[in-house]
Design a protein around this nucleic acid. Structure first.
Length: 625
DNA sequence: TGCCCTTGCGCG
DNA sequence: AAAGCGCGCAAGGGCA
């Protein structure tokens, strides 16, 4: 047994039994039932995309900890493995671990779902410091900030150690090859990179002192952070409990995964590939450039007679080669040469299929052995607490590309959207009587705005969105294709139509540091990266976005807790919940999800509409009809 | 080669 | 007075 007292000066003990010398009785005496323990695992290096679902992924050690001691269990020892499984399976034991990583590892390794018994310190860390830049809530940073610099130090020491091990290993492979008279070309070098990391995490001895100390400290830090972070969040208990539930629900969604129609995936991918390769070759022949080298292509086109002062610009002020801008060059640039026209045509062809190609490639790479993908749903990712998705990001597939995702056999997908939730939220926040009355009457809110500003419905809709996003007259003029003066006039009329929204917006602009939402969530005011000034004009959007997010989570919570149907939730996309439901349960599911997404928000009725997704071919695809 | 930053684009 | 918000991902480009 390796025992480390006060590793790196942190007051605690790490026990790391060697195979054959493990006494389960002593271990279990250290971890009685009914308590909360820090949990951490170390495994082989994680593939960026497939993560826990990569066939080569394997958990090597599992760590349990109190605030004072940790045990590092080596899973290659059957006795230690059984002890770990036993503690993890105890329904009265709860765990504190960082992110859903350990929950997923436990599920993959032991077939145990501990998502409902996990306290996620990543989520707590984000709640405690919503203004810390991305990455600032990782376990090492939190440990450093909360008086445990020993963990980042151990992490650093372990990495330095791994570099040395890897360099020695790489050299040995080379000398072995030379001795055997084989070429050394293609063999890894001693340089530290992804290959070295992958080797080191998979091969470092599980009784290596730096490894076991680091592993034990991880679990101790996770356990200690619970008491440190909860008061630091300044959040009421129900909000913390709701976020802990949500993190678990998101982990369960990730474990279940989504089925991919691999035949359609292959067809669409091949089609996109065919179109883009031909066109990309044409672009190369004509310009000598790749079709995604936008900066250089702009320069080249300038030399072919394009007057960029007449073209559309991107938001950063560069000439745009996106969307309609490219085809527009053909009609609006009389000076463009024949060669330039041919290049633009080919570029447009590439562009038309580029999104499809790259997104579907991402799906291919994310497929597990059963044809499922397991994207993560990150529950507290945006500053506004909106959720994000990754691996792949399910929230930004184009309408067309979504068709590759299908319900499992015997199931259908159901999509349920809130009805104009942003406008209803702003009406509630601002207590805007004109809008609330219209909502209660069931009036068309875009037409209401259109009437108020004296414009067609289309402009009314644009203006509604613009205001929700905190936009100004310049953007409205560009979007609606109207003169700036007219856009200013339209906005003036908008604010007088909805005078309470104006008052609410004006009041919000006094908040220059932090906002607090109806659910007592703290949101830092956005900062302009150019001059460091607070972007108070974005406050309204933050309040709306965050409130709408909390409404969606409330609906999901009800679906899980009141109806007990949480396992049907397939994905959440900002204002939409998608379900995967057994075919004979469709009516029940539609009624339940609509009920859960129907609620009152500060006196404003929130409603939702469900749609059962069925394709022409009878397959239930994630594609709306 | 990997790492970091910027840009552009899909969704809401 | 004026200011469009939030993500993740791929690709280019500069740097070590």
């Amino acid at each position: 047994m390796q025992v480390y007292a006060n590793p790196l000066g942190l007051e605690c003990v790490v026990n790391a039994p060697r195979p054959g010398e493990f006494d389960p009785t002593v271990f279990h005496a250290d971890f009685p039932s009914g308590q909360l323990y820090g949990l951490d695992v170390e495994g082989t290096y994680m593939d960026k995309r497939l993560r826990h679902f990569h066939p080569g992924f394997r958990v090597r050690t599992v760590q349990f900890a109190t605030t004072g001691y940790a045990w590092v269990l080596d899973l290659d020892d059957p006795t230690q493995r059984a002890a770990a499984a036993g503690l993890l399976a105890d329904p009265t034991v709860r765990f504190a671990s960082h992110s859903s990583m350990d929950v997923l590892s436990v599920w993959r390794t032991f077939g145990l779902d501990i998502s409902e018994r996990n306290v996620d310190t990543l989520v707590l860390g984000k709640m405690a410091a919503p203004d810390v830049e991305l990455g600032g809530a990782d376990l090492k940073s939190l440990a450093g900030r909360y008086g445990m610099p020993q963990l980042p130090a151990a992490d650093k020491a372990l990495e330095e150690h791994m570099k040395v091990l890897w360099a020695a290993h790489a050299r040995r492979m080379r000398t072995d090859a030379k001795t055997a008279g084989q070429p050394t070309t293609g063999l890894p070098t001693a340089a530290w990179g992804p290959e070295g990391k992958a080797w080191a995490w998979g091969n470092i001895a599980t009784d290596d002192p730096l490894y076991t100390q680091y592993a034990g400290l991880d679990a101790i830090v996770a356990r200690r952070l619970v008491e440190l972070l909860i008061p630091a969040t300044g959040a009421p208990r129900p909000l913390i409990e709701a976020e802990m539930w949500l993190a678990g629900a998101a982990a369960r969604l990730q474990m279940r995964g989504m089925l991919v129609d691999q035949v359609l995936l292959g067809e669409l991918h091949a089609n996109a590939k065919k179109h883009t390769t031909a066109a990309d070759t044409a672009v190369r022949e004509l310009t000598g450039l790749g079709s995604s080298q936008n900066v250089k292509l702009v320069e080249w086109l300038g030399g072919q007679g394009v007057d960029w002062s007449r073209g559309t610009m991107t938001k950063t002020g560069n000439p745009s080669l996106a969307g309609d801008a490219l085809p527009d060059l053909l009609t609006k640039q009389p000076g463009l040469t024949q060669q330039g026209r041919a290049a633009v045509t080919a570029m447009a062809e590439v562009q038309q299929h580029a999104d499809m190609l790259t997104k579907l490639e991402g799906v291919f790479l994310a497929l597990d052995s059963g044809g499922l993908i397991h994207p993560a749903l990150n529950t507290l990712e945006a500053v506004t607490a909106r959720m994000s998705s990754s691996g792949p990001n399910m929230q930004n597939f184009s309408a067309q590309t979504r068709g590759v995702f299908v319900a499992r056999p015997g199931h259908v997908l159901i999509s349920c959207d809130f009805d104009q939730v942003e406008l209803r939220v702003v009406a509630g926040l601002a207590e805007e009587p004109v809008m609330i009355t219209a909502i209660k009457r069931g009036d068309d809110l875009h037409q209401l705005t259109a009437d108020g500003i004296g414009q067609p419905r289309k402009v009314g809709k644009m203006t509604n969105f613009l205001v929700v996003y905190g936009g100004g007259a310049g953007k409205l003029a560009a979007a609606a294709g109207i003169p700036l003066e007219q856009a200013q006039e339209v906005l003036t009329r908008f604010w007088s139509t909805y005078s309470r929204i104006k008052g609410y917006n004006d009041a919000l602009k006094y908040e220059r540091h932090e906002l607090r939402t109806f659910s007592h969530r703290r949101i830092p005011v956005a900062i302009d990266s150019r001059d460091g000034s607070p972007k108070v004009y974005a406050n309204l959007n933050y309040m709306i976005q965050s409130s709408a997010r909390d409404l969606l989570v409330r609906a999901w919570w009800r679906f899980d807790r009141e109806y007990g149907l949480g396992s049907w939730v397939w994905m959440a996309i900002h204002d939409e919940i998608v379900l995967e439901v057994p075919v004979d349960q469709v009516e029940r599911a539609v009624a339940a999800i609509q009920d859960c997404m129907t609620m009152d928000f500060m006196g404003v009725p929130i409603t939702a509409t469900a749609e059962v997704l069925t394709d022409e071919d009878g397959v239930s695809r994630w594609r709306k009809g």
